[in-house]
Simulated scan of single mutants.
Amino acid sequence: MEIRQVVLCKQLFSEAERYLSRGTPMGHGLAVSIAQDAVELFLRAVMKERHAAGQKVPDEFIKAMDYIDAAADGMEQLKVPLRGKLLELNKARVNFKHYGLSPERLDAGRLVSYVSHFFDEATPRFFGTSFESISLADLLADAAIRDRLKAANEALADENFTAAMGLSAEVVELASVAVMTSLAPAGRLGSPSMSSRLTAALGVDAANELSRYMKGLVNKSNRAALMLALPVDVKHASRFEVLAPPVWLLRDGASYQKQWMVPSEFHTAENARFCVNFATEVSLAVDARMATPLPPLGKQGDDELTGIA
Rank of each mutant, 00 (worst) to 15 (best):
M1V: 12
V6H: 00
Q11G: 12
F13E: 01
A16C: 06
E17D: 08
L20E: 02
S21F: 00
G27S: 09
L30W: 09
A31M: 06
V32E: 02
Q36M: 07
D37M: 13
R44H: 11
A45P: 06
M47D: 03
M47F: 07
E49Y: 03
R50I: 07
H51R: 15
A53K: 15
Q55I: 01
V57N: 11
I62R: 13
Y67W: 07
I68F: 10
I68Y: 12
D69Q: 10
D69K: 10
D69H: 05
A70S: 11
A71F: 14
G74E: 10
L87M: 13
E88Q: 14
N90W: 11
K91R: 15
R93M: 09
R93F: 12
V94G: 05
N95H: 12
F96C: 08
L101D: 10
S102E: 11
L106V: 10
A108D: 04
G109D: 04
V115P: 03
V115D: 01
S116N: 09
H117S: 13
F119C: 03
T123W: 01
F127G: 01
F127H: 09
E132Y: 08
S133M: 04
S133I: 04
I134R: 00
A151R: 10
E154F: 05
A155L: 04
D158G: 05
N160A: 11
M165C: 08
L167K: 08
A169H: 00
V172P: 02
A175L: 02
S176A: 15
V177D: 14
V177M: 08
T181N: 13
G187C: 01
G187T: 05
R188N: 04
L189R: 11
S196W: 08
T199R: 15
T199Y: 09
D205T: 11
L210M: 14
S211I: 14
M214H: 06
G216I: 07
N222K: 08
A229N: 09
V234D: 12
H236P: 00
R239F: 07
E241G: 11
V242P: 00
A244C: 12
A244V: 09
A244D: 06
P245C: 03
V247C: 03
V247G: 02
A254V: 12
Q257K: 15
Q257V: 09
K258Q: 12
S264V: 14
A269V: 03
A272N: 01
V276Q: 01
F278D: 00
S283T: 05
D287I: 00
D287F: 00
A291N: 03
L294E: 11
G298P: 02
G307P: 02
A309P: 12
